[in-house]
C-alpha cells in the first residue's frame, strides 16, 4: 500500500486508514483520493495477488472497476494462437477454453484462470505466441 498525506498527524489516522482500506477492498476500489483546501490524501492499493480476486458483495457479481486487478490468460506453450471465438465483453468461467495454441499437430487448450469478463484480446488469430505469453486480459468477477 502506498499513501501520501499532508503533514498533520491525527491520532485516529491509523484506525481510519485501516477502516478505509477494508472498505476499499470490500468494494473493489483500487484508489481513494481526498482533497480539500490544505489537504490531499491518496491511497492506492496494490493487488495482493493477481490471481486472487478481491472480496465483493455476495449478491452483485460486479466486475472490479480497477484494471490493476485484472488477470492475464497465458499460453501454456510456444506455438500458433487459434481463436475459440472469444472476444471483448464475453464472460468466462474458470477453466473455460478461451483459445488454443497449436504446436505442430497438437492443439492445446488455453483455459481461463478465473471467472470474469474479457477486457482485452492481446493476440490475433493465427499469430505466433510465446511460452506463458498473455493472450487475453480478464477482469475477475466475484460471485458467491
Amino acid at each position: 500500500m502506498r499513501q501520501q498525506k499532508d503533514e498533520t498527524e491525527d491520532p485516529i489516522a491509523g484506525d481510519f486508514l485501516e477502516s478505509l482500506v477494508a472498505a476499499m477492498r470490500r468494494h473493489g476500489a483500487g484508489v481513494f483520493e481526498f482533497e480539500n483546501e490544505d489537504t490531499f490524501l491518496s491511497v492506492v492499493l496494490e493487488a495482493e495477488s493477481p490471481d486472487i480476486p478481491l472480496d465483493t458483495s455476495p449478491d452483485t457479481g460486479n466486475a472490479h472497476p480497477e484494471a490493476e486487478f485484472d488477470v492475464f490468460v497465458k499460453s501454456p506453450e510456444l506455438g500458433l494462437f487459434a481463436s475459440a471465438g472469444k472476444s471483448i465483453g464475453d464472460s468466462v468461467m474458470r477453466n473455460d477454453v478461451v483459445g488454443f495454441v497449436c504446436v505442430g499437430p497438437l492443439r492445446l487448450a488455453i483455459r481461463a484462470p478465473t471467472d470474469g469478463l474479457i477486457t482485452e484480446e492481446l493476440v490475433r488469430d493465427g499469430t505466433p505466441i510465446g511460452y506463458q505469453e498473455a493472450v487475453f486480459r480478464i477482469r475477475p468477477v466475484i460471485t458467491s
Partner: peptide
C-alpha cells in the same frame, strides 16, 4: 524485430 519466449 520480434521477441518470443521459448520456455522456462
Amino acid at each position: 524485430d520480434h521477441a518470443i519466449c521459448i520456455g522456462p
